[in-house]
């Protein structure tokens, strides 16, 4: 790919999804976009870029953005945030919301569903402590393709072995041929919706917990700040925000501050 084409693609992705692609990620462009190029009869990315430049095919634009923003996902990815959620966040909210008996959780980069379903399983395991509660888990993602997979809740043998304890596999999954499907009750407890974090999302309402892990890393500083600031308006005063292990709010926004002793967890600064 020549540098003018690379620049065009980088600008296109930045504008369309907030994704920042540096020159060293050229391989990523090729590996993710070549399948789309081939589907459209091009042997290289040149033809694809030429089509994109014409700007007339909006399905192509969507396909390119989705291919570039799809991430790998595991159940209980990184373990620790889910332990914090179960052992710190949830008990505190059960106490604070004892009268309202309502809990709203948002996974802002739900991808293929492992994160919201992990949280749903934790809620299910703790259901005895929350009699009569209404809990809601919303999973959003930019890509409708990954959301389709998330809704189906169908995972390969490889996927159910990364991060998912065997006891939970036995309890909450059933085998469908070569695949494993998460049970209907867990699926029903998560709602999936397509959403671009670059767009306005304040209509989703207020949340007690927001998971926004490993997505801000793809944005530039200004976009990160905008997204975090809009999220801060949607987080309940005593709510918490979970970011990815390599992410921080420091030097980006003053709306959030770290929760002491809970790595990756943030609360309202004031």
């Amino acid at each position: 790919m020549n540098s003018a084409d690379f620049q065009f693609l980088a600008d296109f992705l930045k504008k369309g999804s907030g994704l920042v692609v540096s020159e060293d990620k050229m391989y990523l462009l090729e590996s993710r976009l070549l399948p789309i190029a081939r589907e459209r009869g091009h042997n290289t990315l040149d033809g694809l870029v030429a089509e994109l430049r014409k700007g007339t095919d909006s399905s192509l634009k969507v396909a390119v953005i989705e291919a570039m923003t799809t991430n790998e996902s595991f159940f209980f990815r990184d373990t620790k945030p889910f332990q914090i959620f179960e052992n710190e966040t949830l008990p505190a909210l059960i106490e604070a919301r004892a009268a309202r008996k309502r809990l709203r959780i948002w996974c802002a980069a739900a991808s293929t569903g492992q994160e919201p379903y992990s949280l749903a399983m934790i809620l299910k395991e703790n259901a005895a402590k929350m009699p009569g509660w209404r809990t809601e888990i919303l999973g959003t993602d930019l890509s409708s393709e990954v959301l389709e997979k998330a809704k189906a809740g169908m995972y390969s043998q490889f996927e159910v072995q990364r991060g998912l304890p065997i006891s939970l596999l036995v309890k909450y999954f059933r085998q469908v041929n070569e695949m494993w499907q998460i049970d209907a009750a867990i699926r029903a407890s998560v709602r999936f919706q397509k959403l671009n974090l670059m767009d306005n999302f304040t209509h989703l309402g207020k949340f007690d917990v927001i998971f926004c892990r490993n997505v801000l890393i793809y944005f530039d500083q200004q976009t990160k700040a905008e997204v975090l600031e809009r999220m801060s308006t949607m987080l309940e005063p005593d709510g918490v925000l979970f970011l990815g292990g390599a992410e921080t709010v420091l030097g980006i926004t003053d709306k959030f501050k770290p929760v002491t002793g809970q790595r990756g967890v943030y609360q309202h600064a004031a």
Binding site: Q157, I166, V170
Partner: peptide, 27 residues
């Protein structure tokens, strides 16, 4: 599922389905 349940009943702590890789063992 039947084999997995049998293993857990007999006192297995975890269960890996082959093929496996480093990532699965580590996890």
């Amino acid at each position: 599922m039947e084999h997995i349940q049998k293993a857990l009943m007999a006192g297995a702590n975890e269960y890996i389905m082959k093929p496996f890789d480093r990532e699965i063992i580590e996890a």
